[in-house]
Design a protein around this nucleic acid. Structure first.
Length: 485
RNA sequence: CGGGACGUAGCCUAGGGGCUAAGGCGUCUGCUUUGGGAGCAGAAGAUCGGAGGUUCAAAUCCUCUCGUCCCGACCA
C-alpha cells in the first residue's frame, strides 16, 4: 500500500501539500494561483469565522459589505498604500464589451473604498466610533503560491474602524489584537507571540502594524493575523473630517485588521503528523467517528449497538459520524479518519457489547481507553478538553524549546545555520535578540540568514539595556528573528 | 520573474521513433471477509498536459505554451 502522506522529515513542503489534498481540505483549480476550498476545508473555515464573528459583535462591531471592484484612482490617494499594493493588483479594464474609462482593480484590501464611503457617513463626533467589519474575498497577484498560506484569491475578514481620538484608535488596535490572540490560542490551539511589526514589515499605509506570530513545526514563523493603527493617514487621503466635541474640525483616527484562510494552514502545520491532519476538537467538522467491527454473525448486534451510541451522543449535542460503509475494513477506516483529522475514534465490536463498553482513541496521541457506553458523552467531552489543551501545550512547548536568546551576530548566524528545511534536527526557530531599530541591520541579517524581524513582542519593550545583536549600537527594542512563510 | 525537476486512466509508475500504450493501487459487480489499509473472480477506465513542427510512422525527437513542485527574488 502506497503511503499517502510524505513524512515531515523527508519533505516538509510535500507533507503539507499531501495533507491538504488527501484530507480533502482544498484542491488546485484551473485558475493559476487560486485554489478550491473543498467542503471539509470550508467547514473548518466556518468554525473559525463564526468564532471571530461572535467576538467582533460582542465588542460592538457590525458586518457590512463593500464592492469587489475599486476605482484605481481611489487606491492612488494614499501614496504608501498604492506603492505597497501596486505590484499585486489585478486590474479590470473592460466591461460590457467596452474598454472602461477608468480601470478598476479587484480589491487587495478595502481601506480605500471604505474610506471613500466613510467620508459621507461621518460628520460629527456623534457618528463615532464607526465599527465595521466585512467578510470577503480579496485578490493579490502572487508569484509563488501555497495552498491556504498564499493564494492569489483568499477569504478573510477586514475590520475598518473610525474614532474620535488617537487613544481610542490605539486601544481598538490592541483590543482586536487581543481577540486574535485569544481565539487563535483557545479555538485553534495555536500559540502565538503578539507584537509590533518593524517599519519595513508594516502594512502599506499604516502608522503601526501589530501581529500575532506562530511557530510551525519546521520552526518557521507564520503571521497569523494583523491589526493596524492607521493614524489619520486614510482620513487625510479621503478627507474624512468630523466636528469634535469642542466644535472644531478634525481628521478621524482609524484602524484596520484582518485574519484570513491562512489560519487553516497554521492549524495544519502546527498540529498535524505523518498520519495526516490533526484538528483541535473546536474546529473538527465532526466530534467523533464510530467504527463498528463485526463478523457476519455479530453484524446486526454491533450495528444496533453502534446506532444506539450514535443516537445517545447526538442527543448529548455531539456531531458524530457512524461509518457503516460495508465495503471497507475497519483498518481502512481507522487510517482514513486519522488522515481526516477527526479528534476521537470510537471502536465498537462484539467484545465491547458483552461488557457494555466502548473503545475510544485519541487522534493526537493514539492513546486508547475503554469506557462504559453509558458514560460515552461525558468521556467524549472530557477527551475533547484534554485534546484541546494538550495540542496547545505541545505546540507551546515546541516553540519554547526552539526559542533562544541571542546576543550577537555570530550567535544569530549559528542559530539559523544554512539549512532551510526540516524539523527536529534542523537549526532555526525564534531568536530573541536586541535591535537598534535600523532598517540596515534588518536587511543585513536577512541577507546573511534569511531571517527577518517577525515582531517586537508586547510587554518586553521596557527598560531595554544592551546593544544591537547585529551592529553593536545601543539597542532600542527586544525583537524576535525568524525565517517566515 | 530567474534557475531546476516533473506532467502517461482517479493515484503511483513503466515504455525515450515501429503492431491493439504496460503494470500496481484505487473504482464498479458478485461472493467471501472485518479488533490497524483482507481474499477470489469478473468489468469499466488514457484523444500519453495543450498547440504546432520533423517523419512513411511521435507518448517518444524539435519549438512554443500551460500547469504543479523545489530553490531564489518579491509579498499576508
Amino acid at each position: 500500500m502506497a503511503e499517502k502522506i510524505t513524512p515531515r522529515e523527508i519533505d516538509y513542503s510535500q507533507w503539507y501539500i499531501d495533507i491538504v489534498l488527501n484530507a480533502k481540505l482544498a484542491d488546485y483549480s484551473p485558475v493559476k494561483g487560486s485554489m478550491v476550498i473543498r467542503p471539509r476545508g470550508y467547514a473548518i473555515w466556518e468554525k473559525i469565522r463564526d468564532e471571530f464573528d461572535r467576538r467582533f459583535k460582542e465588542t460592538g462591531h457590525e458586518n457590512a459589505y463593500f464592492p469587489l471592484l475599486i476605482p484605481m484612482s481611489f487606491l492612488k490617494k494614499e501614496a504608501e498604500h498604492v506603492e505597497g499594493f501596486a505590484p499585486e493588483l489585478a486590474v479590470v479594464t473592460h466591461g460590457g464589451g467596452e474598454e472602461l474609462e477608468e480601470p478598476y482593480c479587484i480589491r487587495p484590501t478595502s481601506e480605500t473604498i471604505i474610506w471613500a464611503m466613510y467620508r459621507n457617513w461621518i460628520q460629527s463626533w456623534r457618528d463615532l466610533p464607526l465599527l465595521i467589519n466585512q467578510w470577503a474575498n480579496v485578490m493579490r497577484w502572487e508569484k509563488r503560491t501555497r495552498l491556504f498560506l498564499r493564494t492569489s484569491e483568499f477569504l478573510w475578514q477586514e475590520g475598518h474602524t473610525a474614532h474620535e481620538t488617537e487613544k481610542e484608535a490605539r486601544e481598538e488596535t490592541l483590543r482586536i489584537l487581543e481577540i486574535y490572540r485569544d481565539v487563535v490560542e483557545r479555538c485553534l490551539a495555536v500559540p502565538v507571540v503578539a507584537g509590533m511589526k518593524s517599519e519595513s514589515e508594516k502594512f502599506a499605509g499604516a502608522v503601526e502594524t501589530y501581529t500575532i506570530e506562530a511557530m510551525m513545526q519546521d520552526k518557521k514563523a507564520l503571521q497569523a493575523g494583523t491589526s493596524h493603527f492607521l493614524g489619520q493617514n486614510f482620513a487625510r487621503a479621503f478627507d474624512v473630517q468630523f466636528q469634535n466635541r469642542q466644535g472644531q474640525l478634525d481628521y478621524v483616527w482609524a484602524t484596520s485588521w484582518g485574519v484570513s484562510t491562512r489560519l487553516i494552514g497554521a492549524v495544519i502545520m502546527t498540529h498535524s503528523d505523518d498520519k495526516g491532519l490533526v484538528l483541535p476538537p473546536t474546529l473538527s467538522p465532526e466530534d467523533a467517528v464510530i467504527i463498528p467491527i463485526y463478523r457476519n454473525d455479530s453484524k446486526a448486534a454491533v450495528i444496533a449497538y453502534a446506532k444506539k451510541l450514535e443516537a445517545d451522543l447526538k442527543t448529548a449535542g455531539f456531531k458524530v459520524v457512524l461509518d457503516i460503509d460495508d465495503s471497507s475494513s475497519p483498518g481502512w477506516k481507522f487510517t482514513e479518519w486519522e488522515l481526516r483529522g477527526t479528534p476521537v475514534r470510537i471502536e465498537i465490536g462484539p467484545r465491547d457489547i458483552k461488557s457494555n463498553q466502548i473503545v475510544m482513541v485519541r487522534r493526537d496521541t493514539g492513546e486508547k481507553l475503554t469506557a462504559l457506553s453509558t458514560e460515552a458523552a461525558s468521556k467524549l467531552k472530557e477527551l475533547h478538553n484534554l485534546i484541546q489543551s494538550s495540542l496547545f501545550e505541545r505546540a507551546q512547548s515546541f516553540r519554547e524549546k526552539n526559542t533562544e536568546p541571542i546576543s550577537d551576530l555570530g550567535g544569530l548566524i549559528e542559530f539559523f545555520g544554512t539549512e532551510t528545511a526540516g524539523t527536529e534536527g534542523a537549526p532555526g526557530g525564534f531568536a530573541e535578540a536586541l535591535w537598534c531599530g535600523s532598517a540596515a541591520c534588518e536587511a543585513s541579517i536577512k541577507e546573511k540568514t534569511k531571517a527577518t524581524i517577525r515582531c517586537l513582542p508586547l510587554g518586553k519593550q521596557d527598560h531595554i539595556e544592551g546593544t544591537c545583536a547585529i551592529c553593536g549600537d545601543p539597542a532600542k527594542y527586544q525583537a524576535i528573528f525568524a525565517r517566515n512563510y
